[in-house]
C-alpha cells in the first residue's frame, strides 16, 4: 500500500494535522466503526427506539396522559385471563420448541445420510415450510382445520373416523397451533443441525468405530457434544421467536375458543389495538422480556465458556 508523506511547507502544522486525520481514518478500527454505522442506525431506529418507546408506553395510563410506573403490570397480575395467557404461552413455546428441535435433529441426520449428489433437492424441499410466509401457509392449514368443513375431517369420515374439533375444542385448538408452529419452524432446526453435523470431523467417528463404539455411543459421545453450542443457540433463538409468535394464532383461532390459544402477542393485540388500551397492550407484550433476557444471558454465557474451552 502506498504511504502518503505529509510535508509541512507552511510550517504552521496544517498538513501534519490533515495527514494525522487521514491516518486516523485509514485505521482498521475506524473503518470498522464507519462500516457498522448504517447497521447501528438501523438497529437504533427499528429495534432500540421501538423497544424503548413500548417500555415508555407501558408506564402510562390508558389515556396515555399520566405516568403510572409499574401500575399496568400490577394490574395484569390481578387478571385471570392474563395468567391463562402466560400459562398458554409457556406451554406453546416449550412444546413447540421441543417438537421442532426433535424433528429437526432427526431430519438433519436423515438428510446427512443422503449422498451429497442428491442432497440439495431434499434440503430445498424440506425448507419449503420455513420459506413460505407464515400467514399464507397458516391460511392453508385453516382450510384443512375449518371448523365445519375441514378437509382433514372429510378424509377421516371417508375411513370411518369421527370428526375432530381442530379449532373449536380447547385441547385440539392448542394442538393445532402448536402443530403448525412445528411444521413451519422445524426446517430452521434442520438446516442449523445439518450445518453442525457437517462440521464434525469424520476422523472422530472413524476413531470411535475402531474403538468399537456403537451408533448410540457415537451419538452420545461425539455428535451431541460437538453440536452442543449450535443446539443451545438454536433453541434460544427459537424460544424467543416462538414466545413472540402472532400470525399462526391470529389466522387459525384468533385466540379462541374461550381465549385458550392466546399468546402474549395476540393478547397484546387484542388488548392494545382492538380494545384501544395501548399501554396495557405494551405491558402484555413486554412481560416476558426480563425472563427471556436472563435466559439469553445464561445460554450465551455458557456457549462462550464452551467455545473458550474448545
Amino acid at each position: 500500500m502506498a504511504t502518503t508523506i505529509a510535508i509541512d511547507a507552511s510550517g504552521d502544522g496544517t498538513l501534519t494535522q490533515r495527514s494525522a486525520f487521514w491516518l486516523f481514518m485509514r485505521r482498521k478500527s475506524t473503518i470498522g466503526v464507519l462500516m457498522v454505522l448504517p447497521l447501528l442506525a438501523i438497529i437504533a431506529g427499528l429495534v432500540a427506539y421501538p423497544a424503548g418507546y413500548s417500555m415508555f408506553l407501558s408506564t402510562l395510563n390508558k389515556a396515555e396522559t399520566k405516568f403510572v410506573g409499574f401500575a399496568n403490570y400490577l394490574f395484569l397480575f390481578k387478571r385471570e385471563t392474563f395468567w391463562m395467557v402466560v400459562q398458554q404461552s409457556i406451554i406453546f413455546a416449550l412444546v413447540a420448541v421441543v417438537g421442532k428441535a426433535f424433528i429437526g435433529f432427526v431430519a438433519a441426520h436423515a438428510v446427512n445420510t443422503i449422498p451429497t449428489k442428491g442432497q440439495r433437492k431434499w434440503r430445498g424441499m424440506m425448507l419449503i415450510p420455513w420459506v413460505i410466509p407464515p400467514a399464507l401457509s397458516t391460511l392453508g392449514w385453516w382450510w384443512l382445520f375449518e371448523p365445519t368443513y375441514s378437509a382433514i375431517n372429510w378424509v377421516l369420515a371417508e375411513i370411518g373416523v369421527d370428526a375432530i374439533p381442530w379449532l373449536s375444542d380447547t385441547f385440539w385448538a392448542r394442538f393445532s397451533v402448536i402443530l403448525v408452529n412445528i411444521w413451519i419452524g422445524a426446517p430452521f432446526f434442520l438446516i442449523m443441525y445439518l450445518a453442525a453435523l457437517k462440521s464434525i470431523p469424520e476422523e472422530l467417528y472413524e476413531a470411535a468405530a475402531i474403538d468399537g463404539a456403537n451408533a448410540w455411543q457415537r451419538l452420545y459421545h461425539i455428535t451431541l457434544p460437538m453440536m452442543r453450542n449450535i443446539i443451545a443457540i438454536t433453541v434460544l433463538f427459537s424460544i424467543i421467536v416462538t414466545f413472540a409468535n402472532f400470525d399462526i394464532v391470529r389466522v387459525l383461532t384468533q385466540g379462541g375458543p374461550r381465549d385458550s390459544t392466546h399468546l402474549f402477542a395476540t393478547y397484546a393485540f387484542r388488548v392494545g389495538i382492538e380494545s384501544n388500551d395501548i399501554p396495557l397492550g405494551a405491558s402484555v407484550s413486554l412481560f416476558m422480556f426480563p425472563v427471556l433476557a436472563v435466559l439469553a444471558f445464561l445460554i450465551l454465557r455458557n456457549v462462550r465458556k464452551r467455545a473458550m474451552e474448545l
Binding site: 371448523p147 365445519t148 374439533p165 373449536s168 375444542d169 385448538a173 379462541g256 374461550r258
Partner: peptide, 18 residues
C-alpha cells in the same frame, strides 16, 4: 354445530349458503 365455537364472521354465511 360444535364448530360454532371457532366460527369467524363468514361461518354463518357459509352455513346458510351451503
Amino acid at each position: 354445530d360444535p364448530g360454532v365455537y371457532a366460527w369467524d364472521d363468514a361461518g354463518n354465511n357459509r352455513w346458510l349458503i351451503s
